[in-house]
Structures are given as structure tokens and as C-alpha cells.
Simulated assay, not measured.
Amino acid sequence: MKKYYLHNGVESSGPFDLAELQMKQITATTPVWFSGMPDWKTAGEIDELQSILKVIPPPFKSEVPKSIPEPQQEEKIEEENPKIMGLNKSTFYIVFIFVSLIIGSVILTIIQEKRRLDFEEKNDKTERENLQFELQEKEIQQQKQLLIEQQKQEAERITKERRAAINAKLSENQVKQIEYQTRLEEAKNKLVKASEFQFFRTADERTREINAIQAEITSYTNEIQSLENEANQLGLELEKIQLKERQNP
């Protein structure tokens, strides 16, 4: 069963079936629409509604005019084509759709522009954060590299000072070894002479002198041995330093 919609020139109402339409007492000029119709029509244009239309008799006149005057024809046309906001129904709907499309297009453009601005702002924020992170990482790497260079320079300085100290100590050690070696040779010569010389001395004096010279020889020998051991240790340390410098140029 068809369902019909009515329009009073401002808003539509419905749907109604035939019985409900009959209760509405629609006239031939009432705008009606049902599903399948391309546009609104008056009730008088729809065959199945002819039986329920309310008949409005024309006003009584003493003389029936032979022809309908032009103003009455225009009024009839206006009744058959009701207006909305001063526009024909079809024109009103065309204007309404056109304005709706324009408004919808403007709203869509505004939404898209806002989304684009938000996206660009997020991208700019991300780029700034990435740039700041890269700068921080670069600064950290530079600080690490600077610390490594400082540690390397400090290690080189300590190594250089140690090598200089070892060379100085070896030179000093060599001088002392020569000195003690000379004294040792002198003590040995004194021992030979003391062992051979016997005049104007008692046996005890000769023994004490020989023991004293032997004590000197022992002392000089121990000193020379100690200097040699120290020189060997310093030489090994110097070799390690030189090997490390060759491995880490």
C-alpha cells in the first residue's frame, strides 16, 4: 500500500495511507508525494486520490462569466504551483541543494585545511625533536671524543715523562756503576798490596786491614750488582713502553 506525504508550504508531514489522507481533507491543490515520484505534485494530478479530495464549490455569482479572467487564471496557477520562501517548489529545492553543496564544500575544505595544518605542525614538531636529538647526540660524541683525546694526551705525557725518568735513571745508574767499578778495582789492588806488604805491621794489623778491604770489595760488588739489577728492570720497562708506542702510534 502506498504511503503519501503532504506539504503545507513550510514543512512536510506523513506518511499517510488513503484513510488517513481522507481524514486530512486534502484538496486538489494540496502538494502530495509518494515513493517513486520524481517531484511533488498536487493531489488533483494523482488519479488514485480523486475519490478522497474535498470539493470546494466556487463562490456564487449572479452572472457566470463566459471565460475566466486572467487574474483568476494566475491565481489558479499559483495554487497549483505553491511557493516556498517566495520561490517555486522546484526552484527552491534546486537552490537548496546548490547552497547545501556549497556549504558542505566549504566545511569539507575547512576540515581538510585544519587536518593539513595539524599534520604539518606534527611533522615540524617531529623534525625539531629529531634535530635536537641529533644535536645532542653529536655533542655527546664530541665530548666523548674530546675526553678520549685528553686521556690519550695525558697517557702520552705520563709515558713521555716516565721514559725520560727511566733514561735519566739509567744514565745515573751507569755513572754509579763506573764509579763503583773503579772503587772496586782500587780495593782489589789495595788487597793485593795489603796481602804482600808485611813490614812494620803485626799479624793482627795485617788481618784487620785485609778484612776491611775485603768488606769494601763486597760492598762495592753488592752495589754494582744492585745497580745492574735495577738497570735490567728499567730496561725491560723501557722496552714495554716502546712496544706499546709502536702498537698504538
Rank of each mutant, 00 (worst) to 15 (best):
L170D: 05
D118W: 11
L146V: 05
T42H: 09
S35A: 10
G44D: 01
N130T: 12
Q174P: 15
K83W: 11
D17E: 08
E134P: 15
I241V: 06
I158A: 02
Q22G: 13
M1F: 13
E186V: 06
E196Q: 11
L146E: 13
A165R: 00
L184M: 09
A19H: 13
L135C: 07
T218G: 14
E205Y: 06
L117A: 13
D204G: 14
V64S: 11
T202D: 06
A165L: 01
L49C: 04
R206F: 14
F200W: 09
T109N: 12
I111G: 08
K190Y: 15
Y93C: 04
E237N: 03
K3Y: 15
E230P: 15
I107K: 00
V106E: 11
E237S: 01
P38N: 06
I210C: 12
Q177L: 12
S226G: 04
W40P: 15
K160Y: 15
A194D: 00
K176G: 10
Q141H: 11
D204A: 13
S67D: 05
E78T: 10
T91S: 12
E245T: 02
T182W: 04
F92W: 13
Q181I: 01
I26D: 02
E239Y: 12
E156K: 08
E216P: 03
Q112F: 10
Q225Y: 13
E127Q: 09
Y220M: 01
Q142A: 11
K244P: 03
P249L: 12
L18G: 05
S226L: 02
L146T: 10
D39Y: 13
S226C: 00
E239M: 03
Q225I: 12
E196R: 06
E196S: 13
